[in-house]
Design a protein around this nucleic acid. Structure first.
Length: 127
DNA sequence: ATAATGACGACTC
DNA sequence: CGAGTCGCCATTA
């Protein structure tokens, strides 16, 4: 857009939202990964901040964003939301371990286009 | 403009 | 594995 001098810089929010929206179904991304893809590799907190400010009913698949280790950090502010997130992910085919953590080893999205179906079949190493 | 916060991450005990 | 601490950055008050 030709708007010299008025280049409204997209806030970190917009970038983060854009990245989250790109997460393929059945895959999950960590806050740090989303932040990095958004251009803030050192601001995983900002990603969380953005989602926190996210209004309910947003078309944004926020449930595909999990904390490091596949844990649902959302539980810190709303245990109920954590349950919703888990149910949604399971419905998309995302596997959880006995501790209620997402098996990142098999569903972590690296920001690249999804490989062939089934290519993600990487066994999760149990701690 | 300064201070405080926070859906985090990684490290240490 | 659990809890605590520091560092990081952008947003909010």
């Amino acid at each position: 857009m030709a708007r010299p001098g008025a280049a409204a810089p997209p806030t970190a929010y917009a970038r983060i939202y854009a990245v989250v929206r790109r997460i393929p179904r059945g895959r999950v991304a960590t806050y740090g990964r989303v932040a990095a893809l958004a251009g803030l590799p050192r601001a995983p907190r900002v990603a969380g901040y953005a989602l926190y400010a996210l209004p309910a009913g947003s078309p944004l698949p926020w449930h595909r964003v999990v904390a490091a280790g596949g844990r649902l950090s959302v539980a810190r502010v709303s245990p109920d939301s954590a349950l919703t997130q888990r149910l949604r992910l399971e419905r998309e085919g995302v596997a959880f371990d006995a501790r209620g953590r997402v098996v990142l080893a098999a569903h972590e999205w690296n920001g690249r286009a999804a490989s062939s179906a089934g290519a993600v079949r990487r066994r999760a190493r149990k701690r």
